[in-house]
């Protein structure tokens, strides 16, 4: 039981979000949180079996929360001023809260703005250090057309999730600087 394995993986797009049926609360989330939550849902993980207090969440938000930031700030002139609901999602880590609430996960959390591989590597290290028994590595990249026009980026809306566990077998064995994992991250990034 000394090896780390990716035991489940998922990729979702904005089309998947439109088709999702995750209850009324889901519709009130920002797009980044919807994508991330749906990616974790698609893992169909047995969190009861893992011990919810010991499941960590590592998230990389490649573009931070800038799309939600722009939507929130563009609403400042509306009736009643900027939206308090949207303000709560102007943090890159907001999706972590939504995942933790839905699945009642009380393990440690990390959130990076940067490359997708940060989340996977740090998820592995949380397990290796004994801080978590299992860990979700979640990647999220959202650039809405409104933000893309403002900062000259390409629009994007996708997320992926991997579940990392200390097991004897799984979808893929984790090794630091693993080229297969790097390829998987690139796939997530490029999709």
């Amino acid at each position: 039981m000394n090896s780390l394995f990716i035991t489940a993986a998922s990729l979702v797009s904005e089309a998947d979000v439109r088709a999702a049926r995750l209850g009324s609360r889901f519709g009130r989330l920002d797009l980044a949180s919807q994508l991330a939550l749906l990616a974790v849902e698609k893992l169909a993980a047995d969190f009861d079996g893992l011990g919810r207090e010991r499941v960590g969440i590592c998230l990389t938000a490649a573009a931070g929360s800038l799309s939600t930031d722009a939507a929130y700030w563009n609403g400042r002139a509306g009736v009643g001023g900027p939206s308090p609901t949207l303000f709560a999602y102007t943090l890159p880590s907001a999706a972590i809260g939504e995942i933790a609430i839905r699945h009642r996960l009380m393990g440690p959390n990390l959130c990076f703005v940067g490359h997708e591989s940060d989340a996977l590597s740090e998820a592995a290290h949380l397990i290796l250090r004994g801080e978590a028994a299992a860990c979700l590595a979640v990647f999220c990249h959202v650039v809405t057309p409104a933000l893309a026009a403002m900062i000259q980026w390409s629009p994007a809306a996708r997320a992926g999730a991997l579940l990392l566990q200390r097991l004897d077998t799984g979808l893929h064995r984790w090794r630091e600087n693993d080229r297969d994992i790097a390829a998987m991250c690139s796939l997530l990034s490029a999709r």
Binding site: I101, M106, P108
Partner: peptide, 11 residues
């Protein structure tokens, strides 16, 4: 150090 999540409420 130690970290946790309440898994309770967003704000």
């Amino acid at each position: 150090w130690g970290n946790s999540n309440d898994a309770n409420h967003l704000t």
